[in-house]
């Protein structure tokens, strides 16, 4: 074995731990949290309670599946919160006037996908950065839902056939969780088993190289945003059904919760790496923490602090590990490979 080969061997072993943490870290944390809670938190082991936890995980979870795909491709979508509100509102309007649940599902999901399509077109064809496009869209869509609702009165509708989707169960398993798992499986399949998924990873890891390798970058990005819309629409429908109502002010800050869940699940914000499994685990972790704190009678305010702390802690681990490795000195990240680029990446956003 040559020196170089030995080095590669050692290197990959070293990276192995990183990869393990990246892939299974959060899932392990969830398991530990469940085991501890099972034995030490009163009432946690009550099956109804545990079923409630997994139900709660689904509402952010479905949208997080779509966001995982977006973040792996190196973009993200800040408009999902507003999209959620608008599409849920329209869905409830439809179901309360036509009493057709199927029509409501279609409207909710299609509206969200349409917004995704507009995002995708603005980003690829006009060339505005994803951050600004989706930030702008979040204002526009939120404004639209206030305009359509003429000031923000929520619509209510509580026919059983409709609210079953958010509140019902099948063989005791909550319907939203079943849908979440179906979404997650679909997301996993798209990412791992289709050419489209491969394109998502390629664009996320190196967009220019992906283009050179023949990846249809623009088309892929448009599809990514449509898919984000699709999964956000599913979340919107479930939340509307769960609450029996939807107004334009629904779930403020939803977009940030979704992004937080995805990132906590080990998906790298810069793109190129990530997994649906991590996202599922992170959504479960959030729901579990909320539930445990509830059972311990911590007030809702403490819960918010705890949630933020968890996110920060989980994401600091890599940085702390690096620091320990380098004996407390700052390092510039571009050193490991000899750079041979003679041009700036710079320019305007």
């Amino acid at each position: 074995m040559t020196v170089a080969e030995k080095q590669i061997k050692k290197f990959s072993v070293k990276l192995g731990w990183d990869l393990l943490w990246e892939r299974y870290g959060i899932a392990t944390v969830v398991l530990i949290a469940w085991v501890i809670a099972f034995f030490f938190v009163p009432n946690f082991r009550n099956p109804d309670n545990m079923l409630n936890v997994i139900r709660q995980s689904a509402f952010v979870g479905c949208a997080a599946v779509g966001m995982t795909i977006a973040i792996i491709s190196g973009t993200f979508d800040l408009s999902v919160g507003s999209t959620l509100a608008l599409s849920a509102y329209l869905g409830l309007m439809v179901v309360s006037t036509t009493e057709s649940v199927l029509l409501a599902i279609l409207v909710t999901v299609l509206v969200a996908m349409l917004i995704g399509l507009i995002n995708g077109l603005l980003i690829t064809k006009v060339g505005i950065s994803a951050f600004i496009t989706t930030l702008g869209m979040s204002f526009i869509v939120r404004g639209l839902s206030y305009i359509i609702s003429k000031g923000g009165e929520p619509v209510r509708y509580n026919a059983k056939a409709f609210i079953w989707w958010g509140n019902g169960s099948f063989l005791r398993i909550p319907i939203p969780f079943i849908i979440f798992i179906i979404c997650a499986l679909a997301g996993w399949f798209i990412l791992k088993k289709t050419p489209f998924g491969r394109y998502v990873f390629s664009i996320g890891t190196n967009e220019k190289a992906a283009k050179v390798a023949g990846v249809p970058v623009q088309r892929t990005i448009i599809f990514i945003f449509i898919i984000v819309g699709l999964f956000t629409g599913i979340s919107a429908f479930l939340i509307g059904s769960r609450l029996y109502s939807a107004g334009p002010g629904l779930e403020p800050g939803f977009e940030l919760s979704v992004i937080a869940a995805v990132v906590l699940g080990g998906t790298r914000l810069a793109g190129g790496r990530g997994s649906i499994l991590g996202t599922i685990a992170a959504c479960l972790l959030y729901a579990t923490m909320g539930n445990i704190l509830n059972l311990l009678h911590a007030d809702a305010f403490v819960q918010r602090v705890a949630v933020g702390m968890i996110l920060l802690l989980a994401l600091s681990i890599e940085g702390i590990r690096q620091r320990i490795f380098e004996h407390s000195s700052r390092r510039i990240t571009t050193l490991e490979i000899e750079p041979n680029s003679n041009e700036y990446q710079g320019g305007q956003a």
Binding site: G308, L311, L312, S316, R323
Partner: peptide
């Protein structure tokens, strides 16, 4: 948090947003 724990600004300030709001509520 950004310089010492090397958390990207986006995530660091996003977490701080939740934490600080929570503290204010408490």
């Amino acid at each position: 948090i950004i310089s010492e724990l090397r958390v990207p600004a986006f995530i660091a300030t996003l977490s701080m947003m939740t934490i600080v709001r929570g503290f204010t509520l408490i």
